[in-house]
Design a protein around this nucleic acid. Structure first.
Length: 423
DNA sequence: CTCCAGGAAA
DNA sequence: TTTCCTGGAG
């Protein structure tokens, strides 16, 4: 039987989605049935079984889950909820306490935005008596973008909200065989339109939960469990056996490599110097050993499979480069001060003697470069330490002399620093 | 080992 | 469009 005219019109309007109206309409019921039967209902931040959802819990967990898997987030979430049971507790906390709680989760701008967002939310609550109730209201909170705001609306307030995160994009590009590059804004726009078309007005929270569960447990990047999928009958990628061809993403360019020395500067009491990094840039707001830039190599090191090991000649290179542009680009203010102080004290030149002890580099890969960090130990006498402390204090640098153990226990240290001190 | 995924901000 | 980090898969 042919479709009535009204439906034909609807179908033609929806051809950008590559799917029939009946498939589009039955998507949500199929997904929700699957979720009720097979989804995860015991995650500590889920609010779908209560009539009084807690937006703080959903906001906190969604920010943590932004670029991080559930199993990684679980212990961090538990510790945050113990230390900061309410948004007021989080807003009132010291930044260093928040940083220490977040340390190891990565993408530390999320932690800074979370702390800032808590203060913003407390201001809204003090003024209106409640959390923001609109999508636009949530999007003004630092660290909350379109998808997180939709998740909070749907799951944290039980209002209408649409999500379109990485899980959703993987499910939808496969189901509708959307072969545009998902890093392009045009494809993102199409995927949002499709997500909105599929999200039911009622139960958008359950739908969001179900989509994330689908993407995380069934429609995985590799080896998707299509036989268990409630969408397999009209999944266009599955029909062609091309599930893993989606989502389409432009190939990434090779990463450059950077080489730095990580200084273990030990005073006479055996304490080590730690610096708080600036808010912007890598490990923003966290604590690190002083790093000294050595050199940068573009792209893949040609034919070189093992890490280059910076030696005394590289330190000479540093001296030459220190007057060039790269100097300011690669050093924080604190590290420039330390570099000058090292030079004054002729400690750099001593690297070939027993004063600086070379060690194997630690490899730490970030989004857009590989970082080879070579730990170097040097002992500082009391007079040198006093002079250095004066210089750092004059520049208003946050610094601490702490044992490795105390630093690990009390400071927010990124993983790379843990790798170094666990040597 | 290498490669990959993932939201928001700037 | 580029910049943020880490854990897990291959």
């Amino acid at each position: 039987m042919t479709q009535p005219t009204a439906n034909s019109n609807a179908t033609s309007l929806e051809t950008i989605f590559n799917q029939s109206t009946s498939s589009l309409n039955s998507f949500a019921p199929r997904l929700l049935d699957w979720f009720a039967e097979n989804g995860r209902h015991d995650l500590p931040w889920q609010q779908h079984q209560t009539d009084k959802p807690n937006p703080y819990i959903v906001w906190l967990s969604e920010v943590m889950l932004q670029q991080t898997q559930v199993t990684t987030v679980l212990p961090y979430f538990a510790r945050f909820m113990t230390s900061f049971p309410t948004v007021q507790d989080l807003a009132a906390a010291e930044w260093d306490t928040v940083a220490e709680h977040w340390a190891g989760l990565g993408y530390y701008a999320r932690a800074r935005n979370l702390h800032k967002g808590a203060k913003q939310l407390v201001a809204v609550i003090d003024e209106t008596g409640d959390f923001p109730q609109t999508l636009a209201g949530w999007e003004t909170v630092s660290g909350v973008g379109p998808s997180t705001a939709g998740a909070i609306m749907a799951m944290g307030l039980h209002r209408y909200g649409v999500i379109c995160d990485g899980n959703v994009k993987r499910v939808l590009t496969r189901w509708a065989a959307i072969d545009g590059d998902i890093t392009k804004s045009a494809t993102t726009k199409d995927l949002w339109a499709l997500a909105e078309r599929l999200t039911p007005i009622e139960n958008s929270g359950l739908f969001a939960q179900a989509m994330m569960d689908m993407g995380a447990t069934l429609c995985t990047r590799s080896k998707p469990a299509c036989l268990l999928c409630p969408l397999k009958d009209d999944c266009l990628a599955h029909a062609e056996g091309r599930e893993t061809d989606y989502p389409v993403k432009a190939k990434k360019q090779p990463k450059p490599s950077k080489f730095s020395n990580a200084l273990l500067m030990e005073d006479i009491d055996g304490n080590i110097l730690w610096l708080q990094r600036p808010d912007n840039g890598i490990w923003g707001g966290l604590w690190s050993l002083p790093l000294q830039f050595v050199e940068k190599i573009d792209g893949k090191a040609s034919g070189q499979t093992t890490a280059k090991k910076p030696d005394a000649s590289d330190n000479k290179k540093l001296e030459v480069r220190s007057s060039e542009k790269v100097y300011e680009a690669e050093f924080t203010t604190a590290e420039q001060i330390i570099h000058e102080w090292l030079t004054e004290n002729q400690l750099v030149a001593a690297s070939t003697s027993s004063t600086l002890l070379d060690d194997d580099p630690i490899k730490h890969s970030l989004t857009h470069f590989h970082w080879y960090l070579t730990p170097q130990k040097l002992t500082i006498n009391a007079k040198q330490m006093t002079k250095l402390n004066e210089k750092l204090a004059a520049a208003e640098i946050a610094f601490k002399w702490l044992s490795e153990q105390k630093a690990q226990d009390s400071l927010g240290l990124p993983r790379a620093m843990i790798k170094i001190i666990e040597r």
